[in-house]
Design a protein around this nucleic acid. Structure first.
Lengths: 223, 223
DNA sequence: TTTAGTAAATGACTATAAGTCATAAAAAGA
DNA sequence: TCTTTTTATGACTTATAGTCATTTACTAAA
């Protein structure tokens, strides 16, 4: 019978509405300063109702984060589907991450939460598993790409694709953090353009991992 | 008269005692979960007394952090005073940061706080200024070192020393974060040794910034 | 249409913890 | 010893996450 299905749909919709309301508040105030009362008001629901859908404020925060991850996954998938050579795709993926940062900076900031386990005091097992799965999908995209580069002989084959992935990711992420928090400081007080630093350090890393053959074939990738 | 000086000394000592007590609790529980009541008990003082010395829990947290920064500064200074060639010192500084991470991981973790401005809701102007100053001293050490490398002709002179500093720092920091939180995951599930990744990516970046002359002179720095 | 049963929603409540303040204790000075 | 200043505190206020008994809305059978 269709009633249960309709109810299921409505429940899912309500979950999404709650996420949308929570998003506004979290984007504006961050995890700590946002209150469940505010979110409830934004969602036009009683606070207790929120707890029927999410077990804790942190779980709700992560539900928003997962929405942000899904967007990232889509952007990355799209960047990888242009049919360009693998090395170009690696560069494109770096750009896609930077595009994500610029376009969805609110989500990007929420990812800080992942990195500080001391903030995780009320995360449910389920939600943690959801996040891990979503996260894993994105890593897989990157790792597969690097593996392809190795198989094609454009990335040195003594490198571990996971190792390369984490190296590139970690570097980009660290710099985008700086851009997020201190771009003006670096630009005005130090005369440093962090966007250029980001591109340059990524390029240096990629170049260091390319095979000699690839350097000849794609001289434009060499700094 | 000496009474005021003695009092000043005692007050300073009390501040340090409070920091030591706070440190234990913060190391154990993190900023959010630690309570001022616990800290007061550890310090054998009433909670209200803490507020005579520090304006907020966050300020107290930062006071602990500054102690951690001072240790870092000392370690870095020591690493730079061996009289070795500049390129070697750059590598040593990377190692010194990793040593700090291993030996003072509790402080290292506290630095997460800096990176998430959304957590800063009660930081006083003074404390912020103290942190900025302490922070600036450390950056200056690094930047001066890179500048020396440029002056000596071992680092490419088209590079901005601040740019180089942030590139190296950001990369190391990002990877040490991963090591802190997910070393086992990467090792056991992915077969990746993050410590090796850290060294390798630093080496790649340094190599990419060296002059040709330096590469000839210090072939051991080339991967 | 009524009624019984189920699912969804809520307002009032509890517990916890940061931060305040009037008052007390201790120290210094006269 | 008495007064003033400094240091310390316990009781209080406020804010907010999370709970729970109760209500409201919806569904289905009589």
């Amino acid at each position: 019978m269709g009633i249960n299905e309709r109810k299921e749909r409505e429940k899912e919709q309500r979950r999404e509405e709650i996420i949308s309301a929570a998003e506004k508040i979290f984007f504006d105030k961050g995890l700590q300063a946002a209150t469940m009362d505010e979110i409830a008001e934004a969602a036009e629901l009683g606070k207790s109702t929120l707890y029927l859908y999410y077990r804790s404020k942190e779980d709700l925060y992560l539900a928003v984060l997962i929405r942000g991850s899904q967007i990232m996954y889509k952007m990355f998938s799209k960047a990888l589907s242009t049919g360009e050579p693998t090395l170009k795709l690696i560069a494109n993926l770096g750009e896609a991450y930077y595009d994500y940062f610029k376009e969805y900076r609110n989500y990007f900031r929420m990812f800080y939460f992942f990195e500080n386990p001391q903030l995780h005091t009320q995360v449910s097992e389920e939600m943690q598993a959801n996040c891990a799965e979503q996260n894993g999908r994105i890593w897989q995209l990157i790792i597969n790409l690097i593996q392809r580069g190795i198989d094609e002989g454009v990335i040195q084959k003594n490198l571990n694709p996971k190792q390369v992935a984490i190296m590139l990711w970690s570097n980009s992420n660290g710099l985008m953090r700086q851009i997020d928090r201190k771009d003006d400081y670096w630009k005005e007080r130090m005369g440093v353009d962090l966007e250029a630093v980001l591109r340059q350090s990524n390029a240096l890393l990629v170049e260091g991992m390319m095979t000699e053959k690839a350097k000849e074939e794609y001289p434009s990738m060499v700094v």
